[in-house]
């Protein structure tokens, strides 16, 4: 299972990566694999204020609809508009072109408190 060490993770299988002042958010390889073929992604609108742990996006696979939770609090500044036409990017490139949205964080400590790659791997092991 691919778990890049250059970013942080949540127990609910989002990843969060620092990019300048922003936090880019997506779902992990484990999450996309569990969901199966992604057919629709609903991303949050730019400008929306979100709390860490709040359901802010929805990923629909053939089988089911799943919430995506904000790993950190702050303001959504951009969402991945390419997913409207190519939701399958979430399956094909979950850590790259399949990113979901970017947050301007309000509390940097929240990012630091997220899981590192090693701890996230343990979470996956518990669930597999």
């Amino acid at each position: 299972m691919n778990v890049p060490a250059d970013r942080k993770y949540t127990r609910s299988h989002e990843w969060a990566k620092q990019e300048g002042d922003l936090i880019v958010v997506g779902i992990s390889d484990f999450a996309q694999e569990s969901l199966g073929d992604v057919v629709f992604v609903e991303v949050p609108e730019a400008g929306r204020e979100v709390e860490a742990g709040e359901a802010v996006a929805v990923i629909e696979s053939v089988k089911t609809a799943s919430d995506v939770y904000a790993p950190v609090s702050g303001k959504v500044v951009e969402a991945n508009e390419a997913l409207a036409d190519e939701p399958e990017l979430v399956n094909g490139d979950p850590y790259g072109a399949g990113w979901l949205f970017k947050i301007e964080p309000s509390d940097p400590a929240e990012f630091e408190a997220l899981l590192g790659a090693e701890d996230y791997l343990k979470v996956i092991e518990e669930e597999s």
């Binding site: 199966g36 073929d37 057919v39 696979s61 053939v62 089988k63």
Partner: peptide, 11 residues
């Protein structure tokens, strides 16, 4: 098995 590779591909 719920799927082998992909529900869409199998469908």
């Amino acid at each position: 098995p719920v799927q082998y590779t992909s529900i869409t591909k199998e469908h």
